[in-house]
Each structure stands twice: as structure tokens, then as C-alpha cells.
């Protein structure tokens, strides 16, 4: 690729990426009751990563975030499958999700749901998929 002068892009993205990351994580956790969830959260996350890859060199980002996204996809799918298997262990059908309310110090009465675990798997799979596709195409000179 060419070597464009993109100081402004770099400066903006450094701040924007943090905001997008925070927003994606917020989207992910709010998914249970408000718009959001693993799919959108994951996509937002990979959008931020794409931004990073666009603004900086692929090699630079890869050195700073040494994640093999193909492996991330596999881990995500495995997490989703294993939360499903979790249901079987407790005698319920495959993929049964459970939830309950707990009193956690700082947060007060909080709902904890196994669906969130499943959602983490979904988010990881989405991030892994989108990033590995983008990277393998972007890498191809």
C-alpha cells in the first residue's frame, strides 16, 4: 500500500477506538434487556479493530494484538457448544439456559444468566470470523 500522510486519522482513531470498544462492551452486556447482544457487540468490536487495521499497518497492529482470529472463532464456537452441554450435565436438554438473581456486593441485586456465557461465545465467534476474513483479504497483496 501507499504511505499516506494520515496523522489526523491516527490521532482521531486512537481516541475513537477506545470509545467504540467501550460502547461495544456496553452493547454486549445490555443485550439482555436492551438493544444489543453478542452479535452486535462482537460486530462493533470488530469494526473498531478494522478501523485500527485501516489506519495503521496490519503488521503493527498484529504485533500489539497478537491474537489468531481463527483460533478465537474456534474458542467462541466451543464456548457456545459447552454452555449447551452444561444443560445436559444438570439433566436438562441440550442448550437449556438458566438465570437467577443474586446479591452481589457493589452491584446490588443482579441477574446472572448462563445465556450471557453463550453470548460470549457468539461474540467471540463473530469477532473471529469477521476479523479473519478481513485480514486474510487485506493481507493478500
Amino acid at each position: 500500500m501507499k504511505e499516506p500522510n494520515d496523522i489526523i486519522l491516527h490521532a482521531v482513531i486512537k481516541v475513537a477506538v477506545v470509545i467504540i470498544f467501550t460502547f461495544s462492551i456496553n452493547l454486549f452486556f445490555s443485550g439482555h434487556h436492551n438493544p444489543g447482544g453478542g452479535f452486535i457487540g462482537g460486530l462493533g468490536f470488530s469494526a473498531a479493530l478494522t478501523l485500527l487495521f485501516l489506519a495503521f499497518d496490519i503488521e503493527t497492529v498484529r504485533q500489539n494484538i497478537p491474537v489468531d482470529f481463527k483460533v478465537l472463532t474456534a474458542i467462541g464456537v466451543l464456548i457456545a457448544v459447552f454452555t449447551g452441554v452444561g444443560g445436559i450435565v444438570f439433566g436438562a436438554p441440550f442448550l437449556t439456559q438458566a438465570f437467577n438473581y443474586f446479591d452481589i456486593p457493589v452491584f446490588g441485586k443482579t441477574e446472572l444468566a448462563t445465556a450471557v456465557l453463550f453470548d460470549i461465545g457468539v461474540a467471540m465467534a463473530v469477532i473471529g470470523t469477521s476479523m479473519s476474513i478481513i485480514l486474510s483479504i487485506g493481507d493478500d497483496h
Binding site: 443485550g31 439482555h32 474456534a74 464456537v77 457456545a80 439456559q97 441477574e111 445465556a115 461465545g121 479473519s132
Partner: peptide, 30 residues
Amino acid sequence: AGARNIVNAILVDFRGIDTMLEIFVLGIAS
């Protein structure tokens, strides 16, 4: 499902197996 967001409840709970297979497909596609 203990969730107020119906879309998410459908995705992760009611139709969980669909989602699971979808992310399988995603992984295979990537």
C-alpha cells in the same frame, strides 16, 4: 428467559440451537 430484550432472548435462548449452528457456519465460512 429472564430477558426484556426479546430479540436477544430468541437468539440465545428460545432458538439457541439456530444461533449455535449459525456461528458454526460463520466459523466454517471464515
